[in-house]
């Protein structure tokens, strides 16, 4: 790595660590930003790097969220009693129970999400193009429908997460630290993976899956593994967001196709599909814009979101980094694999 690179990474690290202290009022927003970065990055693994458009990755976000919730509560109480609207008020957690439960939840979430991705991947990753896209669209929504119909986890009225034992300001910092660690870990893990033969295989599948098979690439294994990796981090993101949000609502929070589910697609495309930094840039630009202007749209935000997707797909399909790379090929040149 060049000195400039080190300097850049150092500055970013410093900024990451300092941000919640510099802007304490925005700590929760900043934590959200890291969640968004994670969502965009994990979408891009399939959508950008592998060329498989998933409209239902939100499934793993939701699964992680519920898995964590069930474990966090289930370790100490009866979940059904806890979610029962009649008697939930009396069940509380000591600080020790809270942190223990959270740790276990953060372990269970990625495991559950990864297992789901392995199972669904084996089932539907033989589908391509629109078939895969629509199948995932269905899966994502089905997740919300099932959760909403499942009384054990509170059904449609949702799941109230255990309350953070510390004071309010510390809560924001705590979740900022969790979310930032997740975002950074996701970035690092994906960058590591993309730099291996695995990354070459992903790109080969994107460009011509049949050709890849004719060369002997283990496409089935790579595809399922890629979705599992993406689900692993999505599951963690779900677990952290569930706790940050406090209330898990099946259709609007956990399996929230109309918000997070769409945002992750949009952010990845906006920043530049199939690039390492594109999803990060896209997430930052989108999240900041969203927070700045969302309130002025007075309820029309989600309409604007639809317009935004259409406009970006039609007029800005390469995204910010894709365009930058085309304008200034030297500065933003494609990772020349093997150039080391």
């Amino acid at each position: 790595m060049s000195a400039r690179r080190w300097a850049l990474h150092g500055a970013l690290a410093l900024l990451t660590a300092a941000a919640p202290f510099l802007l304490p009022a925005l700590a929760v927003q900043l934590a959200m930003l890291w969640i968004m970065v994670t969502l965009a990055l994990t979408w891009d693994t399939l959508g950008g790097q592998m060329g498989y458009n998933s409209f239902g990755n939100i499934l793993f976000f939701g699964i992680g969220m519920y898995a964590s919730a069930i474990v966090q509560v289930g370790l100490f109480h009866d979940v059904a009693a806890y979610t029962d609207p009649a008697g939930s008020g009396s069940l509380t957690f000591t600080p020790r129970e809270y942190y223990l439960g959270l740790a276990a939840g953060l372990l269970a979430a990625p495991i559950a999400a990864t297992l789901a991705a392995l199972a669904f991947g084996a089932l539907i990753l033989g589908l391509r193009g629109p078939y895969f896209a629509i199948a995932t669209l269905g899966l994502g929504i089905a997740g919300g429908e099932f959760a909403a119909a499942w009384g054990y986890v509170g059904g449609a009225s949702g799941f109230l997460m255990p309350v953070f034992p510390g004071e309010f300001g510390r809560r924001a910092l705590f979740f900022y630290a969790l979310a930032a660690s997740l975002g950074i870990a996701t970035f690092a893990a994906l960058r590591w993976l993309y730099g291996r033969r695995f990354g070459l295989a992903l790109n080969a599948i994107r460009d011509d899956e049949d050709k890849a098979e004719a060369l002997g690439l283990p496409t089935v294994r790579v595809k399922i593994a890629a979705w599992a990796v993406s689900a692993f981090f999505l599951g963690l993101a779900g677990a952290i967001f569930g706790n940050l949000n406090g209330l898990i609502e099946p259709r609007e929070v956990a399996f929230s196709g109309a918000t997070f589910g769409v945002w992750m697609v949009l952010m990845a495309i906006l920043g530049g599909k199939g690039t390492m930094w594109g999803p990060v840039v896209g997430a930052v630009v989108f999240h900041v814009t969203k927070e700045l202007f969302w309130t002025y749209l007075l309820g029309w935000q989600r309409v604007a979101l639809g317009v935004l997707i259409v406009v970006i797909v039609l007029f800005f399909p390469l995204g910010i980094l894709g365009h930058a790379r085309r304008r200034w090929p030297e500065t933003f040149r494609a990772r020349v694999e093997g150039a080391a």
């Binding site: 070459l200 994107r206 460009d207 050709k211 060369l215 002997g216 694999e337």
Partner: peptide, 19 residues
């Protein structure tokens, strides 16, 4: 049929027997 969005050298590396 080549991998059209990959560089030439990446095309070759993706064809390596190690896969």
């Amino acid at each position: 049929r080549v991998f059209k969005q990959m560089t030439c050298v990446a095309n070759l590396l993706a064809a390596a027997p190690a896969f």
